[in-house]
Amino acid sequence: MPAKSRFPLLLIGAFLALYFVWGSTYLFIRIGVESWPPLLMAGVRFLIAGTLLYSFLRLRGAPNPSWPQWRAAGCVGILLLSCGNGGVTVAEHAGVSSGVAALAVATVPLFTLFFGLFRGQRNTRLEWAGIVLGLIGIGLLNLGSNLQASPLGAALLIFAAAAWAFGSVWSRSLPLPQGAMAAAAEMLIGGAVLLLGSLISGERLQQWPTAAGWGALAYLVFFGSIVAFSAYMYLLKNVRPAAATSYAYVNPAVAVLLGILFAGEHIGVEECVAMAVIIGAVVLIGVPQWRKAKALPTG
């Protein structure tokens, strides 16, 4: 199949992976942290996924990244995975429900636009309205009983969203490895930093993980990391960052539904109102982005 005709199919597949696979990972993180210490689980997840993907790519003949590429991948991996995903994992371990965690992370496009200002990107009135509405949604979310019961979890989720957004914007100008090798290098370094954090914080595996804990880890390694994260890095290189972060439209709904069906979670009125406000804000931000988003030619 010619490259040009294959390119839209890759875009569609990448977006679907982000929308639905990543929406489900919040539930599997919730299941996993019942058996695993949070930083240890996140570190093992990304180190295994990065090792598998790196080995596969090297066997296929992909070149080993240069030192500047390793350094760039390390910066992005620490921001997106060590700080971003690590923050979410610790927050869910602290008691935040998977649905509310996904809803808090839905603020990533707001932070993406904010950090874009420092790179000379101008925001439209519609985008500014989305930012203001999103900030109101964050305030409403913090009024809910779920985050009020875990102030640490609330702070970690906002930090995680901001770190993920900053890393996504910065990655556009960094000399990252080509193709999926960028994701592999980022997962290797991000996973190693998470394991170092686990060691420093004194985490210990109190007992052998349950079958559900191992199953959650396997799902997060193969689907949440190798498939979905590779898709995300692909989109960051081929569409505007705010378009790549549009998974925030769908992830909260997927996560809330799965949490209610399979984990017995529930969200209050405040969280429901916050969900409507935040998703509305993301839609306001996304409309101009989708109008501007143009795929880069593959040659």
Rank of each mutant, 00 (worst) to 15 (best):
V105C: 02
S201H: 10
F166S: 08
G144L: 11
A295T: 08
Y26R: 06
I138Y: 00
I158Y: 15
A163W: 05
E186N: 10
L27M: 08
S97K: 04
A211D: 04
N251W: 07
L113M: 09
L113N: 12
G190Q: 02
M233K: 03
F46N: 08
V250C: 09
R30W: 06
E92F: 07
G286I: 00
A281Q: 09
F46P: 12
Q69P: 11
R125Y: 08
R6G: 07
W67Y: 11
A274Q: 12
N238C: 02
F229V: 14
S66F: 02
A165H: 06
Y26H: 13
P297G: 08
R58I: 01
P241V: 04
Q289S: 15
L235N: 09
V33G: 03
L156W: 12
L47C: 11
P177Y: 13
A274Y: 09
G50T: 01
G116E: 00
M233N: 14
Y26N: 01
T51S: 15
F222Y: 08
Y54D: 05
V90E: 11
M181Y: 07
T89F: 05
E271P: 06
I278R: 07
L47D: 08
G215C: 09
L176Q: 08
L176C: 14
V239L: 09
A149N: 13
F222E: 08
A211M: 07
G213V: 14
R58D: 03
S246A: 15
W290T: 00
L235Y: 09
F222P: 11
A94E: 14
N251E: 06
